[in-house]
Structure formats: C-alpha cells, structure tokens
Design a protein around this nucleic acid. Structure first.
Length: 234
DNA sequence: CCCAGGTTGACGTTTGCATC
DNA sequence: GATGCAAACGTCAACCTGGG
C-alpha cells in the first residue's frame, strides 16, 4: 500500500473513470459520445475530462494488462505476422506497423512517416527487444521487410505470402472503424498512444482462444471485465 | 495558498449533404 | 464533377474550484 495511488486528487470515482476509458478505447465512440452516454446515467463530466482520463490513465491500464498477459503467451511455435497500414494525419500520410502473433494477440504497434527499410528495421528491433525472437515471421511482399530481416540476420525465418498474412490484416478492421469515428487522428502522438492502448484492450477483451462457443465467450468476457475493474486498484 | 483535476469556449480540420 | 456549408471531431489555452 506504499505505492502512489494513480487516482489521487481525482474528483471522479475510479469506477466511472475506468468505465469512460473503456467505452472510449473499446468502441467506436467519440469523446462527446462518451460524455453523452455517461450523462444518460446521471454522470456529469465534460468530454475534455474524458480525454484527460484517457491520456493519463490509458497507458497505465495498458501497461498493467500487458504485464498480466505476458506469462503463458509463448507457445511451441512462436509465429509473428507483420503488417503495415497507412493512416492520414492532417492530410499527411503515415504508416502504422503492427506485429500480431498466431493467436491474434497484438504484440506491438508503431507509427512512422515512411515505409522503407529503415522504418521496418526500427520496428522489428523494437518488437524483438520486447518480446524476443520468433521462430517464424510472416510478412506481405513489401521488400523493406526482406532487407531489414537480412540485416538482423534471420532472413531464413521469413515467410511471405499474399494469403498467409490475413491474421494481421484482420486486426485492422476494428481499427479502421475506430478511425472513422474519430474523424481521423490529429497528431502522431495520439495515434501512437491510441494504437498501443487499443491493442492491449483489444487483446484483453477479444482473445481468440475463447471465442469458440457462446458459453465460453460469456465466461471470457466476464473474466475480462473483472480484470478490467481491478486495474490500478492496489 | 497552492496545485491538480475539471470546465468552457474557440479553433483548424474533415466529412456528409445539398445544391449547382 | 465541383462548390458551399453546417456539424462533428480532437485539441488547445485560459479559467475555475476544492482538497491538502
């Protein structure tokens, strides 16, 4: 109990803050949508407060989810899927790189201005520093990957394929929906932040392993919710 | 009294729709 | 297809407020 309470000084209860952040990150809602939704339940806060909470507590939540999930993640054949998509920020083209493992967990996301070897290399190094080396890396046919892989020295582990990689591309769908609701991102900083936090929350609630049957889904969702409510409580 | 959370109103950008 | 315009978006800065 000696750790500093991240909710100290907050005038709103932590339950409400957690709910607001979850609504904003998990669903395609704007800040003002969340404000409205909370108002309907008799909670009066400004959309600016929601933004503040998200900026402040979002990374904390994400970090804690990540910490809890790390254990038991590695399987016998550790396979990564790499993919990149472009995102417009104030009319400028940027690229969002993502690494997804074979179970659909989003491992890492990263924003760059260019889509070249340098960017691919930076992203790869960052991901491997955090998660270790995968046995196989699946990419699309973008040549920057091959060049980067050669430099790192695991070109032999690369597999390319037009259809091999939809694992990663599937995870773009919820992201695109989100982008639409936000009417595009304004700043690189917030895109990077949103990508990282969204990945963690997405992993927590949409884990593929337990989506097989309805009852499993319900059980999993209840567990995920319980875990969410426990974030940063200690 | 200080300082952090929270409010308010304005701003630049993007989108969807109507109109030409 | 081009143009104009209102609405909605996230963001910013100035301001308010209440607990330590």
């Amino acid at each position: 109990m000696t750790k500093r309470d991240p909710f100290k000084y907050f005038k709103t209860s932590r339950e409400i803050i957690r709910l607001a952040v979850m609504l904003y990150v998990r669903f395609p809602l704007s800040l003002r949508n969340v404000e409205d939704l909370l108002h309907e339940r008799g909670i009066d806060v400004s959309h600016e407060a929601v933004r503040f909470w998200w900026h402040r507590l979002g990374p904390l939540f994400a970090a804690e989810i990540k910490k809890r999930r790390v254990a038991g993640l590695k399987s016998s054949r550790w396979r990564w899927h790499l993919d990149e998509m472009f995102v417009k920020i104030n009319g400028e083209r940027h690229y969002l790189w993502r690494a997804v493992d074979h179970e659909g967990e989003v491992l890492e996301s990263f924003v760059t201005k260019k889509r070249d070897k340098k960017a691919a290399l930076k992203f790869l190094k960052k991901a491997m520093r955090k998660h270790g080396r995968p046995d196989v890396i699946v990419t699309d046919r973008l040549r920057s990957y091959g060049a980067a892989m050669k430099e790192i020295g695991n070109a032999d582990r690369q597999e390319t394929g037009r259809w091999l990689n939809n694992r990663a591309e599937n995870s773009h769908l919820p992201f695109r929906r989100r982008e639409r609701a936000m009417l595009r991102f304004r700043r690189v900083r917030s895109l990077q932040k949103f990508a990282a936090i969204h990945a963690s929350v997405y992993n927590l609630f949409n884990s593929e392993r337990s989506l097989y049957s309805r009852s499993n889904f319900k059980r999993h969702r209840a567990a995920a919710l319980a875990e969410w409510r426990n974030l940063c409580t200690a």
